[in-house]
Nucleic acid binder design. Structure first.
Lengths: 147, 147
DNA sequence: ACATTGTAGGTCAAAGAAAGTCAAAGTTAA
DNA sequence: TTAACTTTGACTTTCTTTGACCTACAATGT
């Protein structure tokens, strides 16, 4: 079995009873006898937002990596949507989804506003080639964190 | 847990019932078994004006460090912050602002999460030259729409 | 008053501790 | 036999801890 799979499994086991776990990169690398950057690789490939995880970290003394599981308690629906949003999404598609969410009561007006603003063309002001990608990432990640 | 975090927590606990606290640098350092300048470090990184604190001190016999909590009205405060965010903002600065907002009760946990996610490096995945600009736009616009 | 001495706090840079990045080399599966 | 996925490691960035040296104020003796 691949190293990466073992590490993935190990991390996933930590999610017992916890929605959020914290690891020490070097410590974990040592435990698995691999280079630290392998931990980054595992996180990058197995704990992506599109897989329902959100990652935060801090460097320096006492540094750590936090991984949060998107709790889909209320929203299998949201999860379904998130999984089905591709690499890109247009402003229009976002609008449609938001109004769907609103009418299903999955989000409230305030959240709708924030989603809208954070993903609008005006605010992003990015070139066409990356705009929809960045929008997709922001949108998906915000949705994951709506809980 | 980091020394600095412990000291930060300790100081913040002093703010119970008080808008203004006073500490003795050397005494505190002794209490935590660290060098005195570590106290300065904690103050410099965790009690900055941008985090809503105002610090005064006096040297010499009977010297001390006073930390005051700035009590600003909610939206004035937000507006002030929004106006003072420049063309760019780093992920770290956003973090600091968010935790500041939280401790002032200007935003709630849910909103904090959304702000955080929508502006995180992980999510944006943009090149260095535009990342902080895009983040500033998203952040400011989301803040404006909080009220 | 003034100079001296002791008591605080301030500064800054170096060393240390984690995590991040990226690309090259190695593997595996189609 | 390529294309995709993994492993590895050198280099970078960020945050924390520590200590040597500096500055300001207060108390005290003359």
């Amino acid at each position: 079995m691949r190293m990466s799979d073992l590490i993935e499994e190990f991390i996933k086991d930590l999610f017992d009873e916890n929605e959020e776990i914290e690891i020490q990169r070097n410590e974990l690398a040592e435990h698995f006898n691999c280079v630290p950057s392998q931990i980054n690789y595992v996180i990058a490939t197995r704990f992506k937002p599109s897989q329902g995880y959100y990652v935060e970290s801090r460097r320096g003394g006492g540094g750590h990596i936090k991984i949060k599981k998107a709790t889909n308690s209320k929203s299998d629906y949201l999860m379904y949507i998130i999984k089905n949003i591709g690499k890109e999404i247009t402003s229009n598609e976002v609008d449609i989804l938001i109004s769907d969410f609103l009418s299903y009561g999955v989000i409230d007006e305030k959240e709708a506003k924030l989603l809208k603003v954070a993903t609008s063309d005006n605010v992003l002001q990015l070139t066409k080639d990356i705009k929809d990608e960045v929008r997709a990432r922001i949108f998906k990640n915000m949705l994951i964190n709506l809980e």
